[in-house]
Design a protein around this nucleic acid. Structure first.
Length: 450
DNA sequence: TAATGACCTGAGGT
DNA sequence: AACCTCAGGTCAT
């Protein structure tokens, strides 16, 4: 079962618009696999094995072509998707002469990565309305909400309940290997697609999943698969999509304006999802946000509840614990604060709160690079440089190492590729780099400066 | 409506 | 080694 990768193709996009090293491992999708030797990320999407990698000014992508599979006809939905032009508006791909498959892959990637919204504009907007967001966001730029398949998002987040990201990823991988279509084999690793609802609705699925270590989620997954594949109309789940952000291959339609509680379509989708087994308000919101394109959806989990208490003065008076009423109050608060794409902003703060990203706080250095007098005030420009590590073993908070890397940091137009002495896993691959300008009164500036 | 407790598992810590 | 805690919650009572 041999095959080859296509040539790399390039999509010009900066790290502040998309940082895959953050976005692909911040608990949105649980399926992207990092390949250290190739410095790339791999995942099967719509029956195609894709690779992504990135430098400061470009995203690179390619797809795997299995020799024995090239003659197999495309899946049925490819006919529909070839009609949709929504993701091909710009032709910023480098090399022409690509065939229909290359074109399909480009549209697939642009759809999945959800590249249309201007992330830097959104960050600016959120920062101007929220000082806490502004403070946290400098270390976590380029976090974009992916447009995942609704069914995959649904099952993945059923797995997520009372669970950690590492084990969720293992469980999703097991679902693919045991129930998903085989796509390719590279070395000793097999790549499978995510299984469809029918595949997870079989009679032995619950017991199989239990023996695979799914715990009580085995029943939820099986019951939900039965409900979606047998007790709902075909296309029911996809029909809950934001019409402005439909599934791959469907043309977007204009939508409505938003209330603090969210748009009607969002409320409706959320309510419908709650009927499924293992789907409570939090999982439903994750599916709404990451699978159905409802940007105002704000999943309130333990992290977000802690953030709301610590940074937004929740946890007092009427909202002492995370009840349903508190859940709605927190989500509504963030919708009012951040607007229609509140769920996107939420994802930034959520990521900043993840333990697996805590190294980034330690690897961040702020330097005042210019100080200009301006009447009574002094204008201070601060550079924030963050070394972004791919894998974060605990020992690597070795401050000596990090400091030595920081002194070598280059301006933002360059990628840092340095190797630390302990091995390839501890490679610093990128430096996020932003500048912040603030005005301080002369007196305050003299007293205390961090 | 709000508050408990049960529910699976495995990694990491004491 | 035997425990404890924690991890992007949900369900039944």
């Amino acid at each position: 079962m041999a095959g080859v990768f296509s040539e790399w193709r390039r999509l010009p996009i900066g790290l502040s618009e998309l940082c895959i090293n953050t976005t692909l491992r911040c608990g949105q999708s649980f399926r992207w696999q990092h390949i250290p030797e190739e410095e790339e990320w791999r995942c099967v999407l719509h029956g195609k094995l894709l690779s992504l990698k990135q430098d400061t000014s470009n995203l690179y992508y390619r797809h795997y072509k299995s020799f024995s599979l090239t003659s197999i006809p495309s899946p049925p939905d490819s006919k529909i998707s070839s009609r949709a032009q929504s993701d091909t508006e710009s032709s910023d791909i480098k090399a022409p002469g690509d065939n229909a498959l290359d074109d399909e892959v480009l549209r697939l990637i642009k759809h999945y990565l959800n590249l249309s919204p201007s992330l830097s504009s959104l960050y600016e907007q959120w920062s101007s309305n929220d000082a806490n967001f502004k403070k946290k966001a400098v270390q976590f730029t380029g976090i974009r909400i992916l447009r995942q398949d609704p069914w995959e998002a649904l099952v993945s987040f059923i797995c997520s309940s009372n669970n950690n990201i590492a084990r969720i990823s293992q469980m999703v991988e097991k679902l693919c290997l045991n129930y998903g279509d085989f796509i390719a084999k590279i070395g000793d690793r097999s790549y499978h697609d995510f299984p469809n609802p029918e595949a997870l609705a079989g009679n032995d699925v619950e017991s199989n999943l239990r023996s695979l270590g799914f715990g009580y989620r085995a029943k939820y997954i099986h019951r939900t698969a039965v409900m979606v594949s047998q007790e709902r109309e075909k296309g029911w789940l996809e029909g809950l999509c934001n019409p402005e952000s439909p599934v791959f291959g469907v043309l977007p339609k204009p939508g409505e304006t938003m209330q603090p509680e969210g748009r009607q379509g969002y409320r409706n989708a959320h309510e419908n999802l709650l009927e499924l087994q293992g789907v409570g308000p939090k999982v439903a919101d994750c599916v709404c946000l990451m699978g159905l394109g409802w940007g105002e959806s704000v999943p309130v989990d333990t992290h977000v509840w802690q953030i709301a208490q610590r940074d937004y003065r929740f946890g007092k008076s009427s909202h002492k614990s995370l009840t349903k009423a508190t859940y709605d109050a927190v989500a509504n608060h963030f919708r009012k604060l951040w607007g229609q794409e509140a769920g996107w902003a939420h994802s930034v703060l959520f990521t900043a709160d993840l333990r697996s990203f805590s190294d980034r706080l330690a690897a961040t250095k702020k330097v005042d690079v210019s100080v200009k007098e301006d009447g009574e005030d002094i204008e201070v420009k601060t550079e924030v440089r963050t070394a972004v590590m791919l894998t974060a073993p605990k020992e690597e908070l070795d401050s000596v190492n990090i400091k030595s890397e920081e002194t070598e940091m280059k301006p933002m137009t360059e990628v840092i590729r340095t190797r630390k002495r302990r091995g390839p896993k501890e490679e610093i691959v990128q430096a996020a780099h932003t500048t912040d300008t603030r005005r301080v009164s002369k007196r305050l500036r003299k007293i205390g400066d961090p």
